[in-house]
């Protein structure tokens, strides 16, 4: 029993949840009033778009690529959501579908020409931002009523952000970790040659994963404007780094195929809580980014320790 509890595999799985729990308890201790429906709702609200962006990034990392454009992409979908989707829903839906298709096409391009995804997505980040500025030159627009309604839902007992993130985590877990095609998708990142030899189309797996990332990016943008009620081309610039950090905090690794959807969602929640925690500690925002980085390094260092033990066994 003790062996199982101290096995590296178990420790690694538990680390994201444990760091989240420690942070939450620290916040409850600092500000007891956050320990309520209202407090949790407020603190965790912005985790929904961040969790969705993190899942999008996780899909890309699964196939051993990295997406440096997810932040501006979320900003673009937010701008489309607050303008076209609200005024002419059909045009809005078409545009958002076009965004998803563009992502799938990017996946195809990266696979076909064997391009480094970092370079392609870095370039695309400026394209997304440029289109967003064209659609919405000055901040504004209005989110469609149903998006605002959905994000403002008051679920009984458990606040909506928690319900939403749990549902997101579980659904993606079932699709990616429990289904047979999910195993193929993960294999395409971990060991592409084996998957290719087994007769699966690697082009298709890339397109599916990039398309899924685009889809979750769209969801992230829509949930974000549901909270803010208006958009801004720069609204989600920081999400690129949040998303990568969330995946890694949640137990994912850059080697491809080694990811955890539930971990990624918990990672996103941990990141959001870090901001609140540091504010409650009255740490100046100038130091907060550094402190956030510090927390990230501590968690990663713990994981490195666990991995080293695994190596010894």
């Amino acid at each position: 029993m003790v062996d199982r509890l101290t096995s590296p595999r178990f420790l690694r799985a538990v680390l994201p949840a444990a760091s989240f729990a420690i942070l939450l308890i620290a916040i409850f201790y600092l500000k007891p009033r956050t320990m309520s429906y209202f407090g949790l709702n407020l603190m965790l609200q912005y985790t929904v778009p961040i969790a969705l962006a993190t899942i999008a990034q996780m899909f890309i990392i699964t196939v051993n690529d990295l997406d440096l454009s997810i932040g501006p992409f979320v900003g673009l979908t937010a701008c489309i959501g607050a303008t076209w989707l609200a005024d002419t829903p059909l045009l809005g839906i078409l545009a958002l579908a076009g965004c998803v298709a563009a992502y799938a096409a990017l996946g195809a391009l990266i696979h076909w020409r064997n391009l480094p995804s970092i370079v392609v997505t870095l370039g695309m980040s400026f394209v997304w931002l440029g289109i967003a500025v064209l659609i919405l030159p000055t901040p504004g627009g209005t989110a469609p009523g149903w998006v605002k309604w959905l994000m403002g839902v008051k679920t009984p007992v458990v606040p909506f952000p928690i319900v939403a993130t749990v549902v997101i985590g579980l659904v993606v877990h079932l699709l990616l970790m429990r289904s047979s095609y999910g195993a193929v998708l993960r294999g395409a990142g971990g060991n592409p040659r084996a998957i290719g030899r087994a007769g699966w189309s690697l082009l298709k797996t890339k397109m599916v994963m990039f398309g899924a990332a685009g889809f979750f990016g769209v969801l992230s943008g829509l949930s974000l404007i549901g909270l803010t009620s208006a958009a801004d081309a720069h609204i989600a610039d920081r999400y690129t780094l949040y998303a990568i950090a969330g995946v890694i905090l949640g137990g994912g690794e850059f080697v491809g195929g080694r990811v955890s959807p539930i971990g990624a969602v918990i990672g996103a929640m941990t990141l959001t809580l870090t901001g609140s925690f540091l504010t409650f500690l009255k740490i100046s925002p100038d130091w907060q980014i550094g402190a956030q980085g510090g927390i990230l390094i501590i968690v990663l260092a713990l994981r490195a320790l666990i991995n080293r033990r695994e190596g010894l066994v």
Partner: peptide
């Protein structure tokens, strides 16, 4: 007290305001 966000970002300032609400 005065709080300045580090990066002039909407999402960052929205989170800052929410934390102020919780701070009471």
């Amino acid at each position: 007290p005065a709080f300045t966000t580090a990066e002039n970002q909407v999402t960052e300032q929205a989170a800052q305001i929410q934390n102020m609400i919780l701070e009471g």
